[in-house]
Design a protein around this nucleic acid. Structure first.
Length: 944
RNA sequence: GCGGAUGUGGUGAAAUUGGUAGACACGCUAGACUUAGGAUCUAGUGCCGAGAGGUGUGCGGGUUCGAGUCCCUCCAUCCGCACCA
């Protein structure tokens, strides 16, 4: 009998569960370390081998930190609200809670098999009322907060109310609050504020709340019957399901994440995340510096209806990053949705403009994006006055201008902007050059000069300046003349927060006379009500409108939309700190101890969703004094995807005959995916294949010379339809959890995308058995010697300890596995059977192969289950000192031979000794060396 | 188009500060043993060459006694973003 992993692993799984070995408390005397995995959504498909990759890495690291004396928090839970369960509910009528429960049970079963040290007593589920009660409370806190641009932090809405009471609206800097506030809120005095009724006051406050109900253009997905946030839309279709998206003006709950744009950007500099994720977030936030410029209308074109617009109505505000080109403006273009379009269009142009706007508005996002090269637009008939030159400027409408970015209006400088150039060429509008290109070969006839380089010309006071200087100078002049002001613009939009769906957190809002009010904390949780169907009502209301007698104080309607998937996951890492706390989100004592996550491992696909929202909520909670840090995840590693290795058989077209890989090209063939369980080492199990599908039962096979049928392969994503899915369960059954853990790490660097190759797992399995044999030299009977390790053995041990520690410290898990293999190979060669050498190795491998390690630890005479409480072995430098070294001797940098020399020798001694050797003279070809480089302990290089 | 990452044997990969390229493992070849197996052990395995030797880290240059590693140019693949004013 060999190492029986089934018995051993089963024994320790039960032991850990019974003794709650992984339960962790707050030990304030110990330093803390918080290792977290990204929150899984428990899908019906269960786990494939790609999913646990990150969990294994974090588990190894968590166990390593534990052995280093840290108090390690390593929890797991479920992001259990979400669309798939709801879609399933719609199809089958089964309550999503039930499906979710079943999926979680399957996940838990799969996770338990792999031997993770999760503290399951801390498990959270976003869909349980004990959890979403607190998500709702955070929503209310956001609702009751505003962003104070003077203090640059979120504050309770009361501080805003007191400003209004004392100073009126002029005491608030409006511009940073976004949401088109400048246009929507008319100035008022303190006295006026006090005279407003509650409805009016609440309407004004709504423009400032961090969770607010506002009218905006949203991504409406008709197929799913809900709105989606920008990060849930990819290339104009929904990220999940790929359904078309329309832009629609709707009243929606949103989160004012834009108020935090600058801090979300700045914070990236202080966190240890991959450059690519940080860059993705920077792009998403999209900061651009420039200025806004007001172009006043020529008198006869000033719109008459100005009641709701304030004083800005006589001007159009544009945003530009190139104020240096202001003298090159030849027209202004408005987005089709721009609210002024209708008001300024002249009667002659009205017909044409309305047709165009109507068409542009109805185009879906996807159409609009697919069609970026078609130039379209229409003249409104209106004219503006250039602020500096006083020349008349035409106002156009064009769908290349986006309503959601900047002011929805651009000053067109065709000579120095590609889109403006194309637009001007297409419509025959003037092109006025104001920059002399720094590249003399550039032709203004061919294309615009868009580089921020060159000398300004034809531009009055800017003439002769270089672009970068001219930009600053232009802003100064614009501000001096009150034509506009320097301004920072962000691409980031406020995040739409309501979903017209059932399976999510109810938004804790009720309506009194159509005015939204937040629930009190005492009213929470606002439970998700039962409904007869998970579909919208006949009136198009969300599913929650179906709930019977679901009213606040039996009187007021609740909000019918629910929260999006990212609500619960934006703060879950905080609830783990104190998951059962019935009185608060978490206790201050615990949050002060555990603080933020030290190591976060997960995929990079959440770069602009979860990872941005969690940072946003963290900053908010920090501002409101609820947590003592403002970044959630100090260090993050993004594990690479594990791709499947699909196998193919080649069907001869028109026959029920398959041809083997090497000669397939001699036939007209079609490649067909074949289930990887029917393949061993690329060879097809023909009998099983015949049984796999009835139509192949009688198939013929043209084989290799040796009679085997060899399949082809391709590396692609794992999916059921490609028959290349490898589940961890199967591998645990065949090889054991410890082997699976080590093999997943052995595949390659954690961050890298890599193909799954089932074959290689035998190597790791063999390694563990080889290790086992060192302690079971004959007949699988445990036996170790109590002799002291001799020099060579001790060197192997200490070299290994050193390398493992160094590799773990730089998260290089794959090289750890090779290091272990090398150590066991060397000790096997040395026939080492000594406890003094092997026992430290058993502790060293505990984070990687915990079941294996526990078993050997116990056999070595230690108390069962205590290997997790040991100290991680330290290396002793004295064992690593070598007396001799095989110096590689190279000639002109090419290694030719080696000479074993004492490391005591100085460089000069090495040189003298080496040069007189016959072996070396042979290579010298009777020349005398020009130069001899000796790097002690490294190399000798002789230059001829 | 912009930004990020990656290019090393038949395969997954290693080489941490410039110093023996290919450790470790899979696969393959040959052999030993045998309850014929997806077990274990031994030897070999970058490429060319019988050998001496030559050659080799995507291509081409450069710096250096010495480059997978540093610098420049180009190419390929993957991932973001993309009418962002």
């Amino acid at each position: 009998m060999e190492y029986d992993f089934r018995t051993v692993e089963d024994k320790w799984r039960k032991f850990w569960a019974k003794n709650q070995t992984n339960k962790i408390g707050e030990d304030f005397d110990k330093p803390k370390f918080y290792v977290l995995d990204m929150f899984p959504y428990p899908s019906g498909a269960g786990l494939h081998v790609g999913h646990p990759l990150g969990y294994i890495a974090s588990d190894i690291y968590a166990r390593y930190k534990k052995l280093q004396g840290f108090n390690v928090l390593h929890p797991m839970g479920y992001d259990s609200f979400g669309l798939p369960a709801e879609q399933y509910a719609i199809q089958t009528g089964q309550h999503p809670a039930l499906t979710t429960e079943q999926n979680i049970a399957r996940y838990r079963d799969q996770l338990d098999k792999i031997g993770f040290c999760f503290d399951w007593s801390r498990e959270v589920r976003t869909s349980s009322p004990e959890y979403y009660k607190w998500t709702q409370q955070i929503f209310i806190k956001l609702f009751n907060s505003w962003y104070n641009p003077k203090n640059n932090r979120a504050e309770h809405i009361d501080t805003l109310i007191s400003i209004f009471e004392n100073e009126g609206s002029k005491g608030v800097t409006l511009e940073i609050l976004t949401g088109e506030i400048e246009k929507e809120v008319l100035p008022f005095s303190a006295a006026e504020w006090k005279s407003f009724d509650e409805r009016k006051q609440r309407e004004i406050l709504m423009h400032f709340r961090l969770a607010y109900l506002g009218e905006s253009f949203v991504n409406w997905c008709p197929a799913m019957g809900t709105v989606l946030a920008n990060d849930e839309v990819v290339n104009g279709v929904s990220e999940r399901g790929g359904h078309p998206i329309e832009r629609k003006l709707m009243k929606q709950w949103s989160m004012r994440i834009t108020a935090f744009a600058q801090r979300l950007l700045d914070g990236l500099n202080d966190i240890d995340w991959s450059e690519s994720i940080k860059e993705t977030q920077r792009n998403w936030i999209g900061r651009s510096e420039g200025c806004s410029i007001f172009f006043p209308f020529l008198k006869e074109f000033t719109p008459k209806d100005t009641s709701s617009m304030g004083e800005n109505s006589s001007k159009i505000e544009v945003f530009t990053t190139r104020p240096d080109t202001v003298f090159g403006v030849s027209f202004v273009t408005l987005a089709p949705e721009h609210e002024l379009v209708d008001k300024i269009t002249t009667n002659e142009q009205r017909q044409e403009v309305e047709t165009y706007v109507e068409k542009a508005k109805n185009r879906s996002e996807r159409e609009r994006q697919a069609d970026v090269n078609t130039i379209s637009g229409v003249f409104t008939g209106a004219y503006l006055e250039h602020p500096f030159t006083k020349e008349p400027i035409q106002v156009w409408v064009g769908d290349y201008v986006l309503v959601g970015y900047g002011t929805g209006a651009v000053m067109a400088v065709p000579a120095h902007d590609e889109r403006d150039y194309k637009f001007a060429k297409h419509f025959g509008l003037p092109i006025k050059q104001v920059i002399n290109p720094s590249n003399p070969e550039h032709s203004m006839e061919q294309e615009a000069w868009t580089e921020k380089e060159g000398e300004v010309i034809n531009s009055d006071f800017l003439n002769g300046l270089q672009v970068k200087i001219a930009i600053k100078r232009a802003i100064e002049e614009i501000e001096k003349n009150y034509f506009g002001r320097g301004r920072v613009n962000y691409r980031l939009r406020d995040a739409v927060f309501g979903r017209q769906r059932y399976w999510g957190e109810p938004i804790p809002i009720y309506y009194k006379d159509e005015v939204p009010y937040a629930l009190n904390y005492d009213d929470l949780p606002l439970n998700l009500p039962e409904v007869d169907k998970y579909l919208p009502t006949e009136d198009g209301e969300p599913p929650l409108a179906r709930a019977i007698n679901w009213k606040y104080q039996n009187e007021y309607n609740y909000e019918f939309s629910t929260m999006p998937g990212w609500a619960g996951s934006s703060w879950y890492f905080l609830r783990y700190l104190d998951p059962k706390n019935p009185n608060d989100l978490f206790s201050q004592e615990k949050v002060n101890y555990w603080k933020n996550v030290d190591l976060y491992i997960g995929g990079s696909e959440h770069a602009t969703g979860h990872l941005l929202y969690a940072r946003f909520w963290t900053k908010f909670l920090f501002d409101r004094g609820i947590i003592p840090f403002d970044e959630p995840f100090k260090k993050m590693i993004n594990q690479g995807m594990i791709l499947g290795r699909s196998s193919f058989v080649y069907l001869v077209i028109g026959e029920n005959k398959f041809v083997t890989n090497s000669i397939k090209d001699h036939f007209k063939h079609a490649a067909i995916h074949v289930d990887i369980s029917l393949i061993d080492n690329d060879k097809l199990n023909i009998n099983e294949f015949r049984k796999w599908r009835p139509e192949y039962a009688e198939a013929e096979f043209i084989c290799e010379e040796d009679g085997s049928y060899v399949c082809g392969y391709e590396v692609e994503k794992m999916s059921k339809s490609k028959y290349n899915v490898q589940t961890p369960d199967e591998l645990v059954d065949k090889f054991g959890a410890d082997t699976l853990r080590m093999y997943e790490m052995f595949l390659g660097p954690l961050e890298q995308t890599k193909p799954w190759d089932t074959k290689g797992i035998t190597g790791v399995n063999g390694f563990l058995r080889k290790f086992w044999r060192l302690l079971h030299p004959t007949e699988n009977i445990f036996s170790v010697s109590n002799e002291l390790g001799h020099e060579k053995e001790m060197r192997v041990l200490h070299k290994t300890i050193k390398r493992i520690r160094e590799d773990l410290d730089r998260y290089s898990f794959n090289t750890c596995i090779s290091t272990f293999m090398i150590a066991i190979n060397e000790l096997t060669d040395l026939k080492c059977n000594k406890k003094a050498v092997l026992e430290p190795l058993v502790v060293l491998i505990a984070p990687f192969a915990p079941h294996f390690s526990e078993e050997l630890w116990e056999k070595l005479g230690n108390q069962a289950g205590t290997v997790t409480n040991q100290s991680y072995p330290e290396y002793d430098e004295t064992f690593l000192i070598e007396s001799n070294f095989d110096y590689p001797i190279s000639f002109n940098g090419k290694m030719r031979t080696k000479v074993n020399l004492s490391l005591q020798l100085t460089a000069k001694e090495v040189e003298t000794y080496v040069l007189q050797l016959d072996e070396i003279q042979k290579w010298m070809e009777n020349k005398s060396p020009k130069k001899v480089i000796v790097v002690p302990g490294k190399i000798v290089n002789i230059v001829l």
